[in-house]
Amino acid sequence: MGQRSLGVTLAAAALVASGVAPAGAAAQASFPADADQVVTVVADSPSATTATLTAWERDGGGWVPVRGPVAVFVGKDGIGQASETTSHTPAGTWSLTEAFGIQPAVTRLPYRQVTTSDWWVSDVRSPHYNTHFSCAPGTCPFDEAAGENLGKAGPVYNQAVVIDYNRRPVVPGAGSAFFLHVTGGRPTAGCVAIPAADLDAILRWLDPARRPVIEISA
């Protein structure tokens, strides 16, 4: 989808939800016109390693919070311009089009149940950079040390949603493997990490027909 500002604050949307503002105010504040589900991740500053996540859905002329606010972890370097050499969580608005996990699917998004033969490629020299690839360990056509074995990651990848940063088109070195995943209790290498129960609820709520996006800002 590419980077695009939502132009709405949590405070403004919260006023709508509470009935203080008129029902059309959130829509006028311009969430993406083609999205009916939005997950916002807002940090207090670009260097903060924690943020607040809220899930919103379009309801008539306004927006209603359906989950959150939830405290989450973001990248060790905060929120900003992502790359392969930083631990920034990418700032911007990105579509949410697929999910994966070690556990079985609970979502309507296209879902891949992963094993130790599932990878996310971070080898900048590989034509498969920033994509999923299936291969047995020791046989992959890329530098496995510069990739992430999804099945070996443990509980943090019990469930995860792919954040479509740097995917269409893929720019080598601009950063790879950005997910909304289960928290490990600390800042991440660039992903958004959320408590397991909240992620499970969001996965069950996400509907590809409603064109969900995530907006990350500080």
Results as ranks from 00 to 15, higher is better:
Q3C: 09
Q3L: 13
S5P: 11
S5F: 12
L6Q: 15
L6K: 07
V8Y: 00
L15E: 10
L15R: 04
A21W: 03
A25I: 07
A26V: 01
A27P: 02
Q28D: 12
A29P: 00
S30D: 13
P32W: 02
A35I: 04
D36Y: 00
V38R: 01
V39R: 00
V42Y: 01
D44K: 11
S45E: 05
A48N: 06
T49C: 08
T50Q: 13
T50D: 08
T50L: 06
T52M: 04
R58Y: 03
D59R: 10
D59Q: 10
W63R: 07
W63V: 12
G68Q: 00
V70F: 01
V70D: 00
K76M: 08
K76V: 06
D77T: 13
A82H: 08
E84S: 14
T85H: 15
T86L: 09
T86C: 04
A91N: 06
T93A: 03
W94V: 07
T97F: 09
P104D: 11
P104V: 06
T107Q: 01
P110K: 13
R112G: 09
S117C: 03
V121F: 06
V121L: 10
S122M: 13
V124A: 13
S126D: 08
S126I: 00
H128I: 05
F133P: 04
S134C: 08
G138I: 09
G138R: 12
G138P: 03
E144H: 07
A145H: 09
G147K: 05
E148D: 14
G154M: 09
V156I: 11
Y157T: 02
Q159L: 12
A160T: 02
I163Q: 00
I163T: 02
D164C: 01
Y165R: 04
Y165G: 03
R168E: 08
R168I: 02
P169L: 08
V170T: 08
V171P: 01
A174K: 13
A174T: 10
H181M: 11
G185R: 15
T188E: 10
A189Y: 15
A193W: 01
A196G: 14
L199W: 11
D200I: 02
D200Y: 14
L203V: 07
L206P: 06
L206Y: 06
L206C: 06
D207N: 15
D207I: 15
A209K: 14
V213F: 12
V213N: 06
E215Y: 10
E215P: 08
I216G: 04
A218H: 03
